[in-house]
């Protein structure tokens, strides 16, 4: 199995090391053609506005097509990029998952925080969730499953194998969410 990690800017190196712990091959994605032999894609945290400017149309169209048949997971900035709609400020997005997100919804770095949250993965797991200048999911489509909430805000959602988390599992030292994503990819792969 090969998992792509979007490597335009941000925390992509951290995901690569977690994925290696799970014994999957990792591929850095910068162009649409890089997606060809990937079975799933992680869009990491970083600055969504920076990534938007660095990606080509070919890359974004490639990711939209990819997400129709293979799992895509957006973390923090990545969750913003794959949203249907983005605010604060309004910004283009890929519409891979039917959610609306609001950027920097908690405030600046002094408002970043860590919370312990129960998450509905293959079974319920209690995980440390790291929120850094995080967005909020402020709107959810009818087919979206909420897997975790924090103070009533959804922080992990899923639709058709595509996942958005507003927190950073790669910073908490736990590999459970990555393991869940890799299992999701495996399911999609066996059904293809």
């Amino acid at each position: 199995m090969t998992v792509g990690v979007l490597a335009l800017q941000g925390g992509f190196a951290l995901h690569e090391s977690v994925l290696r712990q799970l014994n999957v091959d990792v591929r850095r994605i910068r162009y649409g053609s890089d997606l060809e032999d990937a079975d799933g894609l992680i869009i990491p945290g970083g600055e969504s506005s920076t990534m938007l400017k660095l990606g080509t149309r070919e890359l974004w169209d490639g990711i939209i097509a990819f997400a129709a048949t293979r799992p895509v997971w957006g973390i923090c900035a990545g969750s913003i990029l794959i949203s249907r709609h983005v605010s604060n400020p309004d910004q283009e997005s890929l519409g891979v998952i039917d959610i609306a997100t609001r950027r920097n919804a908690y405030g600046a770095q002094n408002d970043s925080f860590i919370a312990t949250v129960e998450i509905d993965l293959d079974k319920k797991r209690v995980l440390e969730c790291v929120f850094i200048r995080a967005p909020k999911i402020v709107g959810i489509g009818p087919n979206v499953t909420v897997r975790a909430t924090c103070n009533d805000d959804p922080i992990m959602v899923e639709e058709n194998g595509n996942i958005a988390t507003t927190f950073h599992p790669e910073l908490s030292g736990s590999i459970e969410v990555h393991r869940y994503f890799v299992a999701k990819i495996e399911t999609f792969r066996s059904e293809r």
């Binding site: 490597a7 335009l8 800017q9 941000g10 925390g11 992509f12 190196a13 951290l14 945290g45 970083g46 600055e47 920076t50 923090c76 900035a77 770095q109 970043s112 925080f113 860590i114 790291v130 850094i132 200048r133 950073h168 910073l171 908490s172």
Partner: peptide
């Protein structure tokens, strides 16, 4: 320790950038 994680975490999110 939590704050260290948050602060180094933000630094990591700025990687690969200008």
């Amino acid at each position: 320790d939590e704050q260290v994680k948050l602060n180094v975490g933000l630094a990591r999110m700025l990687c690969g950038g200008v």
